[in-house]
Simulated assay, not measured.
Amino acid sequence: MSRNSEFYKVDIRSPSAAFLPCLSFNAATKRNRPQLEIGSLVYARVEEAHADLDTELTCIDPETKKCWNTGEVLLGELKNGLSFEVALSAAQRLVAVDCYVLDRLGKDFSYELCAGTNGRVWLVAPTARETVLLLQAIRRSFGMTNVQVEAMVGKMVQVFS
């Protein structure tokens, strides 16, 4: 939403904006830190949340020592791709380890997806056509049974081939 020299204000679909310190990235320093533009999409985790204070986010991944600018760190700016919003219940379904629709789509299509528990989803595929096709499939799958998802993806594969 906005930025200054010390932190970024981030819209996380809550009543108040969160803040992300500029140095909250793996190996970020005052000279070597990300320069996020207003409107950038960031995959971050909540560091602190208090009822009376702004929520603090971080993009530091404690499980890796890699630098933020290598592109090998899980948390950080999401470039290219398409972002869209889904209901919170749908986001929880996408985040689940055993999400059938994502597993099934992954058998026939290559894509990268990042779903947040706040309902924001980022998706990128090799072509724009595949990206839109996958977006429609994911949106339509909510409320479907596994058998219905299987039939839908089967039709998609026939049409796309």
Rank of each mutant, 00 (worst) to 15 (best):
K79F: 11
A28D: 11
R140D: 09
A128I: 15
S2L: 13
V153N: 03
A115Y: 08
V95N: 02
I38A: 10
V95K: 12
K30I: 14
S83H: 15
A28G: 03
R129L: 13
G119T: 05
E112N: 06
S141K: 06
V10F: 08
R104I: 02
A44K: 07
V147G: 06
G154C: 10
G143Y: 07
R3W: 11
V147A: 12
G116H: 01
N146C: 08
A18I: 15
G106S: 03
R93F: 02
V121Q: 02
T58G: 08
S141R: 05
T131W: 11
S141A: 05
A51V: 15
T70D: 14
Y111L: 10
S83P: 14
S161M: 14
N118C: 14
L57P: 10
S24H: 00
V132Q: 03
C114Y: 00
N118M: 09
V101I: 07
R3P: 08
M152G: 04
V132G: 06
A128K: 14
G76Q: 03
Y8V: 02
K155P: 02
A125R: 01
L123R: 06
V46T: 01
R31T: 14
D52E: 11
Q35K: 15
D54S: 15
A44M: 03
L57A: 01
R120D: 11
E6Q: 05
N80C: 07
P126E: 05
V147W: 12
L36H: 00
Q148N: 11
S89M: 08
C114K: 05
R31G: 15
E85I: 13
I60F: 06
F25W: 13
T29N: 00
L75D: 03
F19T: 01
